[in-house]
Design a protein around this nucleic acid. Sequence first.
DNA 1: CCAGGACTGGACCGAACGTTCCAACCAGTA
DNA 2: TACTGGTTGGAACGTTCGGTCCAGTCCTGG
Lengths: 213, 213
Amino acid sequence: MRASEVREAGRTAPRRSGAGRSDAADTRCRIIEATAALLQRQGYESTSVKAIAGAANASPSSVYHFFPGGKQELAIEAMRHGAAEFGELIAEGLASSPDPAEATAACALLLADTLRESDWTDGCPVAVTALETVGRVPGLQEAATEALTRWRSLVAAKLQESGIEPAAARSLAGTVISMLEGAELLSRVSGDDTPLRDAAVHLAQLVRASPRS
Amino acid sequence: MRASEVREAGRTAPRRSGAGRSDAADTRCRIIEATAALLQRQGYESTSVKAIAGAANASPSSVYHFFPGGKQELAIEAMRHGAAEFGELIAEGLASSPDPAEATAACALLLADTLRESDWTDGCPVAVTALETVGRVPGLQEAATEALTRWRSLVAAKLQESGIEPAAARSLAGTVISMLEGAELLSRVSGDDTPLRDAAVHLAQLVRASPRS
DNA sequence: CCAGGACTGGACCGAACGTTCCAACCAGTA
DNA sequence: TACTGGTTGGAACGTTCGGTCCAGTCCTGG
């Protein structure tokens, strides 16, 4: 898919021989990406290891070879992967305008387009998995918290650029993430991007009305 | 648990002569309530029928006796039950002040208190289950959409009372629900009610800035 | 060319899943 | 007392789960 072959880490020797030969790192990467996609769509409990292996064109033993910690370890790594990608989407939205109000609105609209065009499957890669495992899979909860915090920091930085006080920016940025998550939930469940489009309008209002120094 | 006490009392004490089915209706009710509680906490896939039966002091066969449609039918009914209760919580928050800005903020704060005091378990009874089954269990998705629409109507009515135009009120009410859902997600995942408290402040700002006729 | 480690395919495991089945139970009626 | 029909407990069904195991295959360093 995207530039994911960056994962390499040079653990083993660069065994590039034939052209069509599938690298070990490539298999590992395929497993992570397949897991991320399935987690995003159907969450943790509904995603079986065999389904992951199938989607990644690998066998269960390969999954356990690369992720000895089993499904949990794999899910954590996949969530980190998905979170990074979603962070790029947020960054892209934020970069689309110098005005922070328009930029946050753009995030919501970008998310709305992505969701609608993917039949309501490609949204936040954290929400479903995090919600259904909260309090029961600590590693996942931790990874989810990290992701949410990071996204909030991205938004907060943009808000601070326009002169909003750091504390207010952090608080408002958290609300921006909350709004994106909540509006995505409503949009996915109702199969209608109106909640996200409304969120875009109201987020812009909220940011525009925020006091600057 | 309360349910077992009620059941014991009902068995030893003489029942009303008119309705011989009060025992059965009680079992059915216990099953629904237990299901609602489990769905709210851990979602659909992580909740087994045997766990439901255990929590309701019933046996699996009783579950299938009252809900021949199996887990799906039961989950739909339980979601409706939980949605009605959550609607009451929203109504309570809305009724706490004549000012719609303060009223919506009160909803967020009420939710924050409820969540924190229940160790982040008793939140929206729809979010987890709806998200993890979206597109795969149509009946559940429908029930979830109904619930979200109803809650939005409650908020919209409150907003209209203060003179906000119906269309704007409906849109803003949807955003209020989105914000509550999203902030609850962040609060539950991070185990910190700050997102909901921030949401309360920003919701109040948003409502206060809304144009009236 | 071979030794050895990384990797893979697929059979296999015990446990848990949703669900079904049936024998008992219990109040009311005759 | 026998019968009835709704209700219950618990065993059992076939399936699928997460995970293990092992006999290979392939690549690579020596």
